[in-house]
């Protein structure tokens, strides 16, 4: 679940609409949505387990069930749209499907943000999802099953926007710093978008740099490695190691 609308996202909208016409794109995007919703549902279950408030626990639970259901609907849609032997069918088949998204890091989102910011996050993310789903509903107008699915999901989504908004309003009345929480979440989202972007750029440069290292440094060493190569099939005697168990345990080699 990603949150704020970044300006780039808006600017890219016409481009995305065009890109959506490429073969395989709708299926791939439905698969991406499915992964994102599954990850969001897991975040929500974590929040449900951790919140101290009984009323929010139920709210988070229902929200999680909705997100996981959305994830399944998107997945079904992706499977129906995907051409046989496409990358999407392979991704859908892969049971590491959620691994590429899911929850990362030691702390679940709820613990990382705390309750108020988590609610701010939910509100922003759901509002953004509602806009995205509406956009998809337009893009997929020619696919009645998808349009129906998005209409139904839109109704659920409205409930999520409403409850999270109501919670933020109540918090504001209690004097909690809602505005700063919203900005903190927006900043976090922008920071994460920046990190994703810079990571990509960084990976690109690191890749180029590593290619140079590979050709220039590893090249000569590869000759040496080949000279010293011992291909030893079959059962071998273990290498002698006269270190004590304690000494060995200390070392990483």
């Amino acid at each position: 679940m990603r949150c704020a609308d970044v300006p780039l996202d808006l600017a890219l909208r016409p481009v995305r609409a065009l890109a959506f016409r490429l073969p395989g794109r709708p299926a791939a995007e439905m698969a991406e949505l499915s992964q994102a919703e599954a990850g969001g549902g897991l975040d929500m279950l974590e929040a449900c387990e951790r919140t101290a408030r009984a009323d929010l626990r139920r709210q988070f639970f229902l929200h999680a069930l909705d997100q996981l259901r959305r994830s399944r609907l998107f997945r079904q849609r992706a499977a129906a749209l995907a051409q046989a032997r496409s990358r999407t069918t392979a991704v859908l088949e892969d049971s590491g499907y959620i691994a590429s998204h899911g929850i990362r890091g030691a702390d679940p989102l709820y613990s990382e943000l705390g309750e108020l910011r988590f609610l701010a996050y939910v509100w922003l993310a759901e509002r953004r999802s509602a806009r995205r789903f509406a956009a998809y509903q337009r893009l997929m107008a020619g696919d009645p099953a998808a349009a129906g699915m998005f209409a139904e999901i839109g109704r659920d989504g409205l409930l999520h926007v409403t409850y999270s908004r109501a919670e933020l309003d109540l918090a504001r009345q209690r004097g909690e710093p809602v505005t700063s929480a919203l900005w903190a979440v927006r900043r976090r989202c922008a920071w994460q978008a920046w990190m994703r972007f810079s990571r990509r750029v960084g990976d690109l440069f690191a890749g180029l740099w590593l290619a140079v290292v590979y050709l220039v440094v590893l090249g000569p060493f590869s000759l040496l490695a080949r000279l010293l190569e011992r291909d030893e099939p079959g059962l071998l005697a273990p290498e002698a190691d006269d270190r004590s168990a304690a000494q060995r345990a200390w070392e990483q080699a």
């Binding site: 590979y214 050709l215 090249g219 590869s222 040496l224 490695a225 080949r226 190569e229």
Partner: peptide, 8 residues
């Protein structure tokens, strides 16, 4: 190293 240059 042994797979050079196919291991880039």
């Amino acid at each position: 190293l042994l797979g050079f240059p196919w291991t880039l």
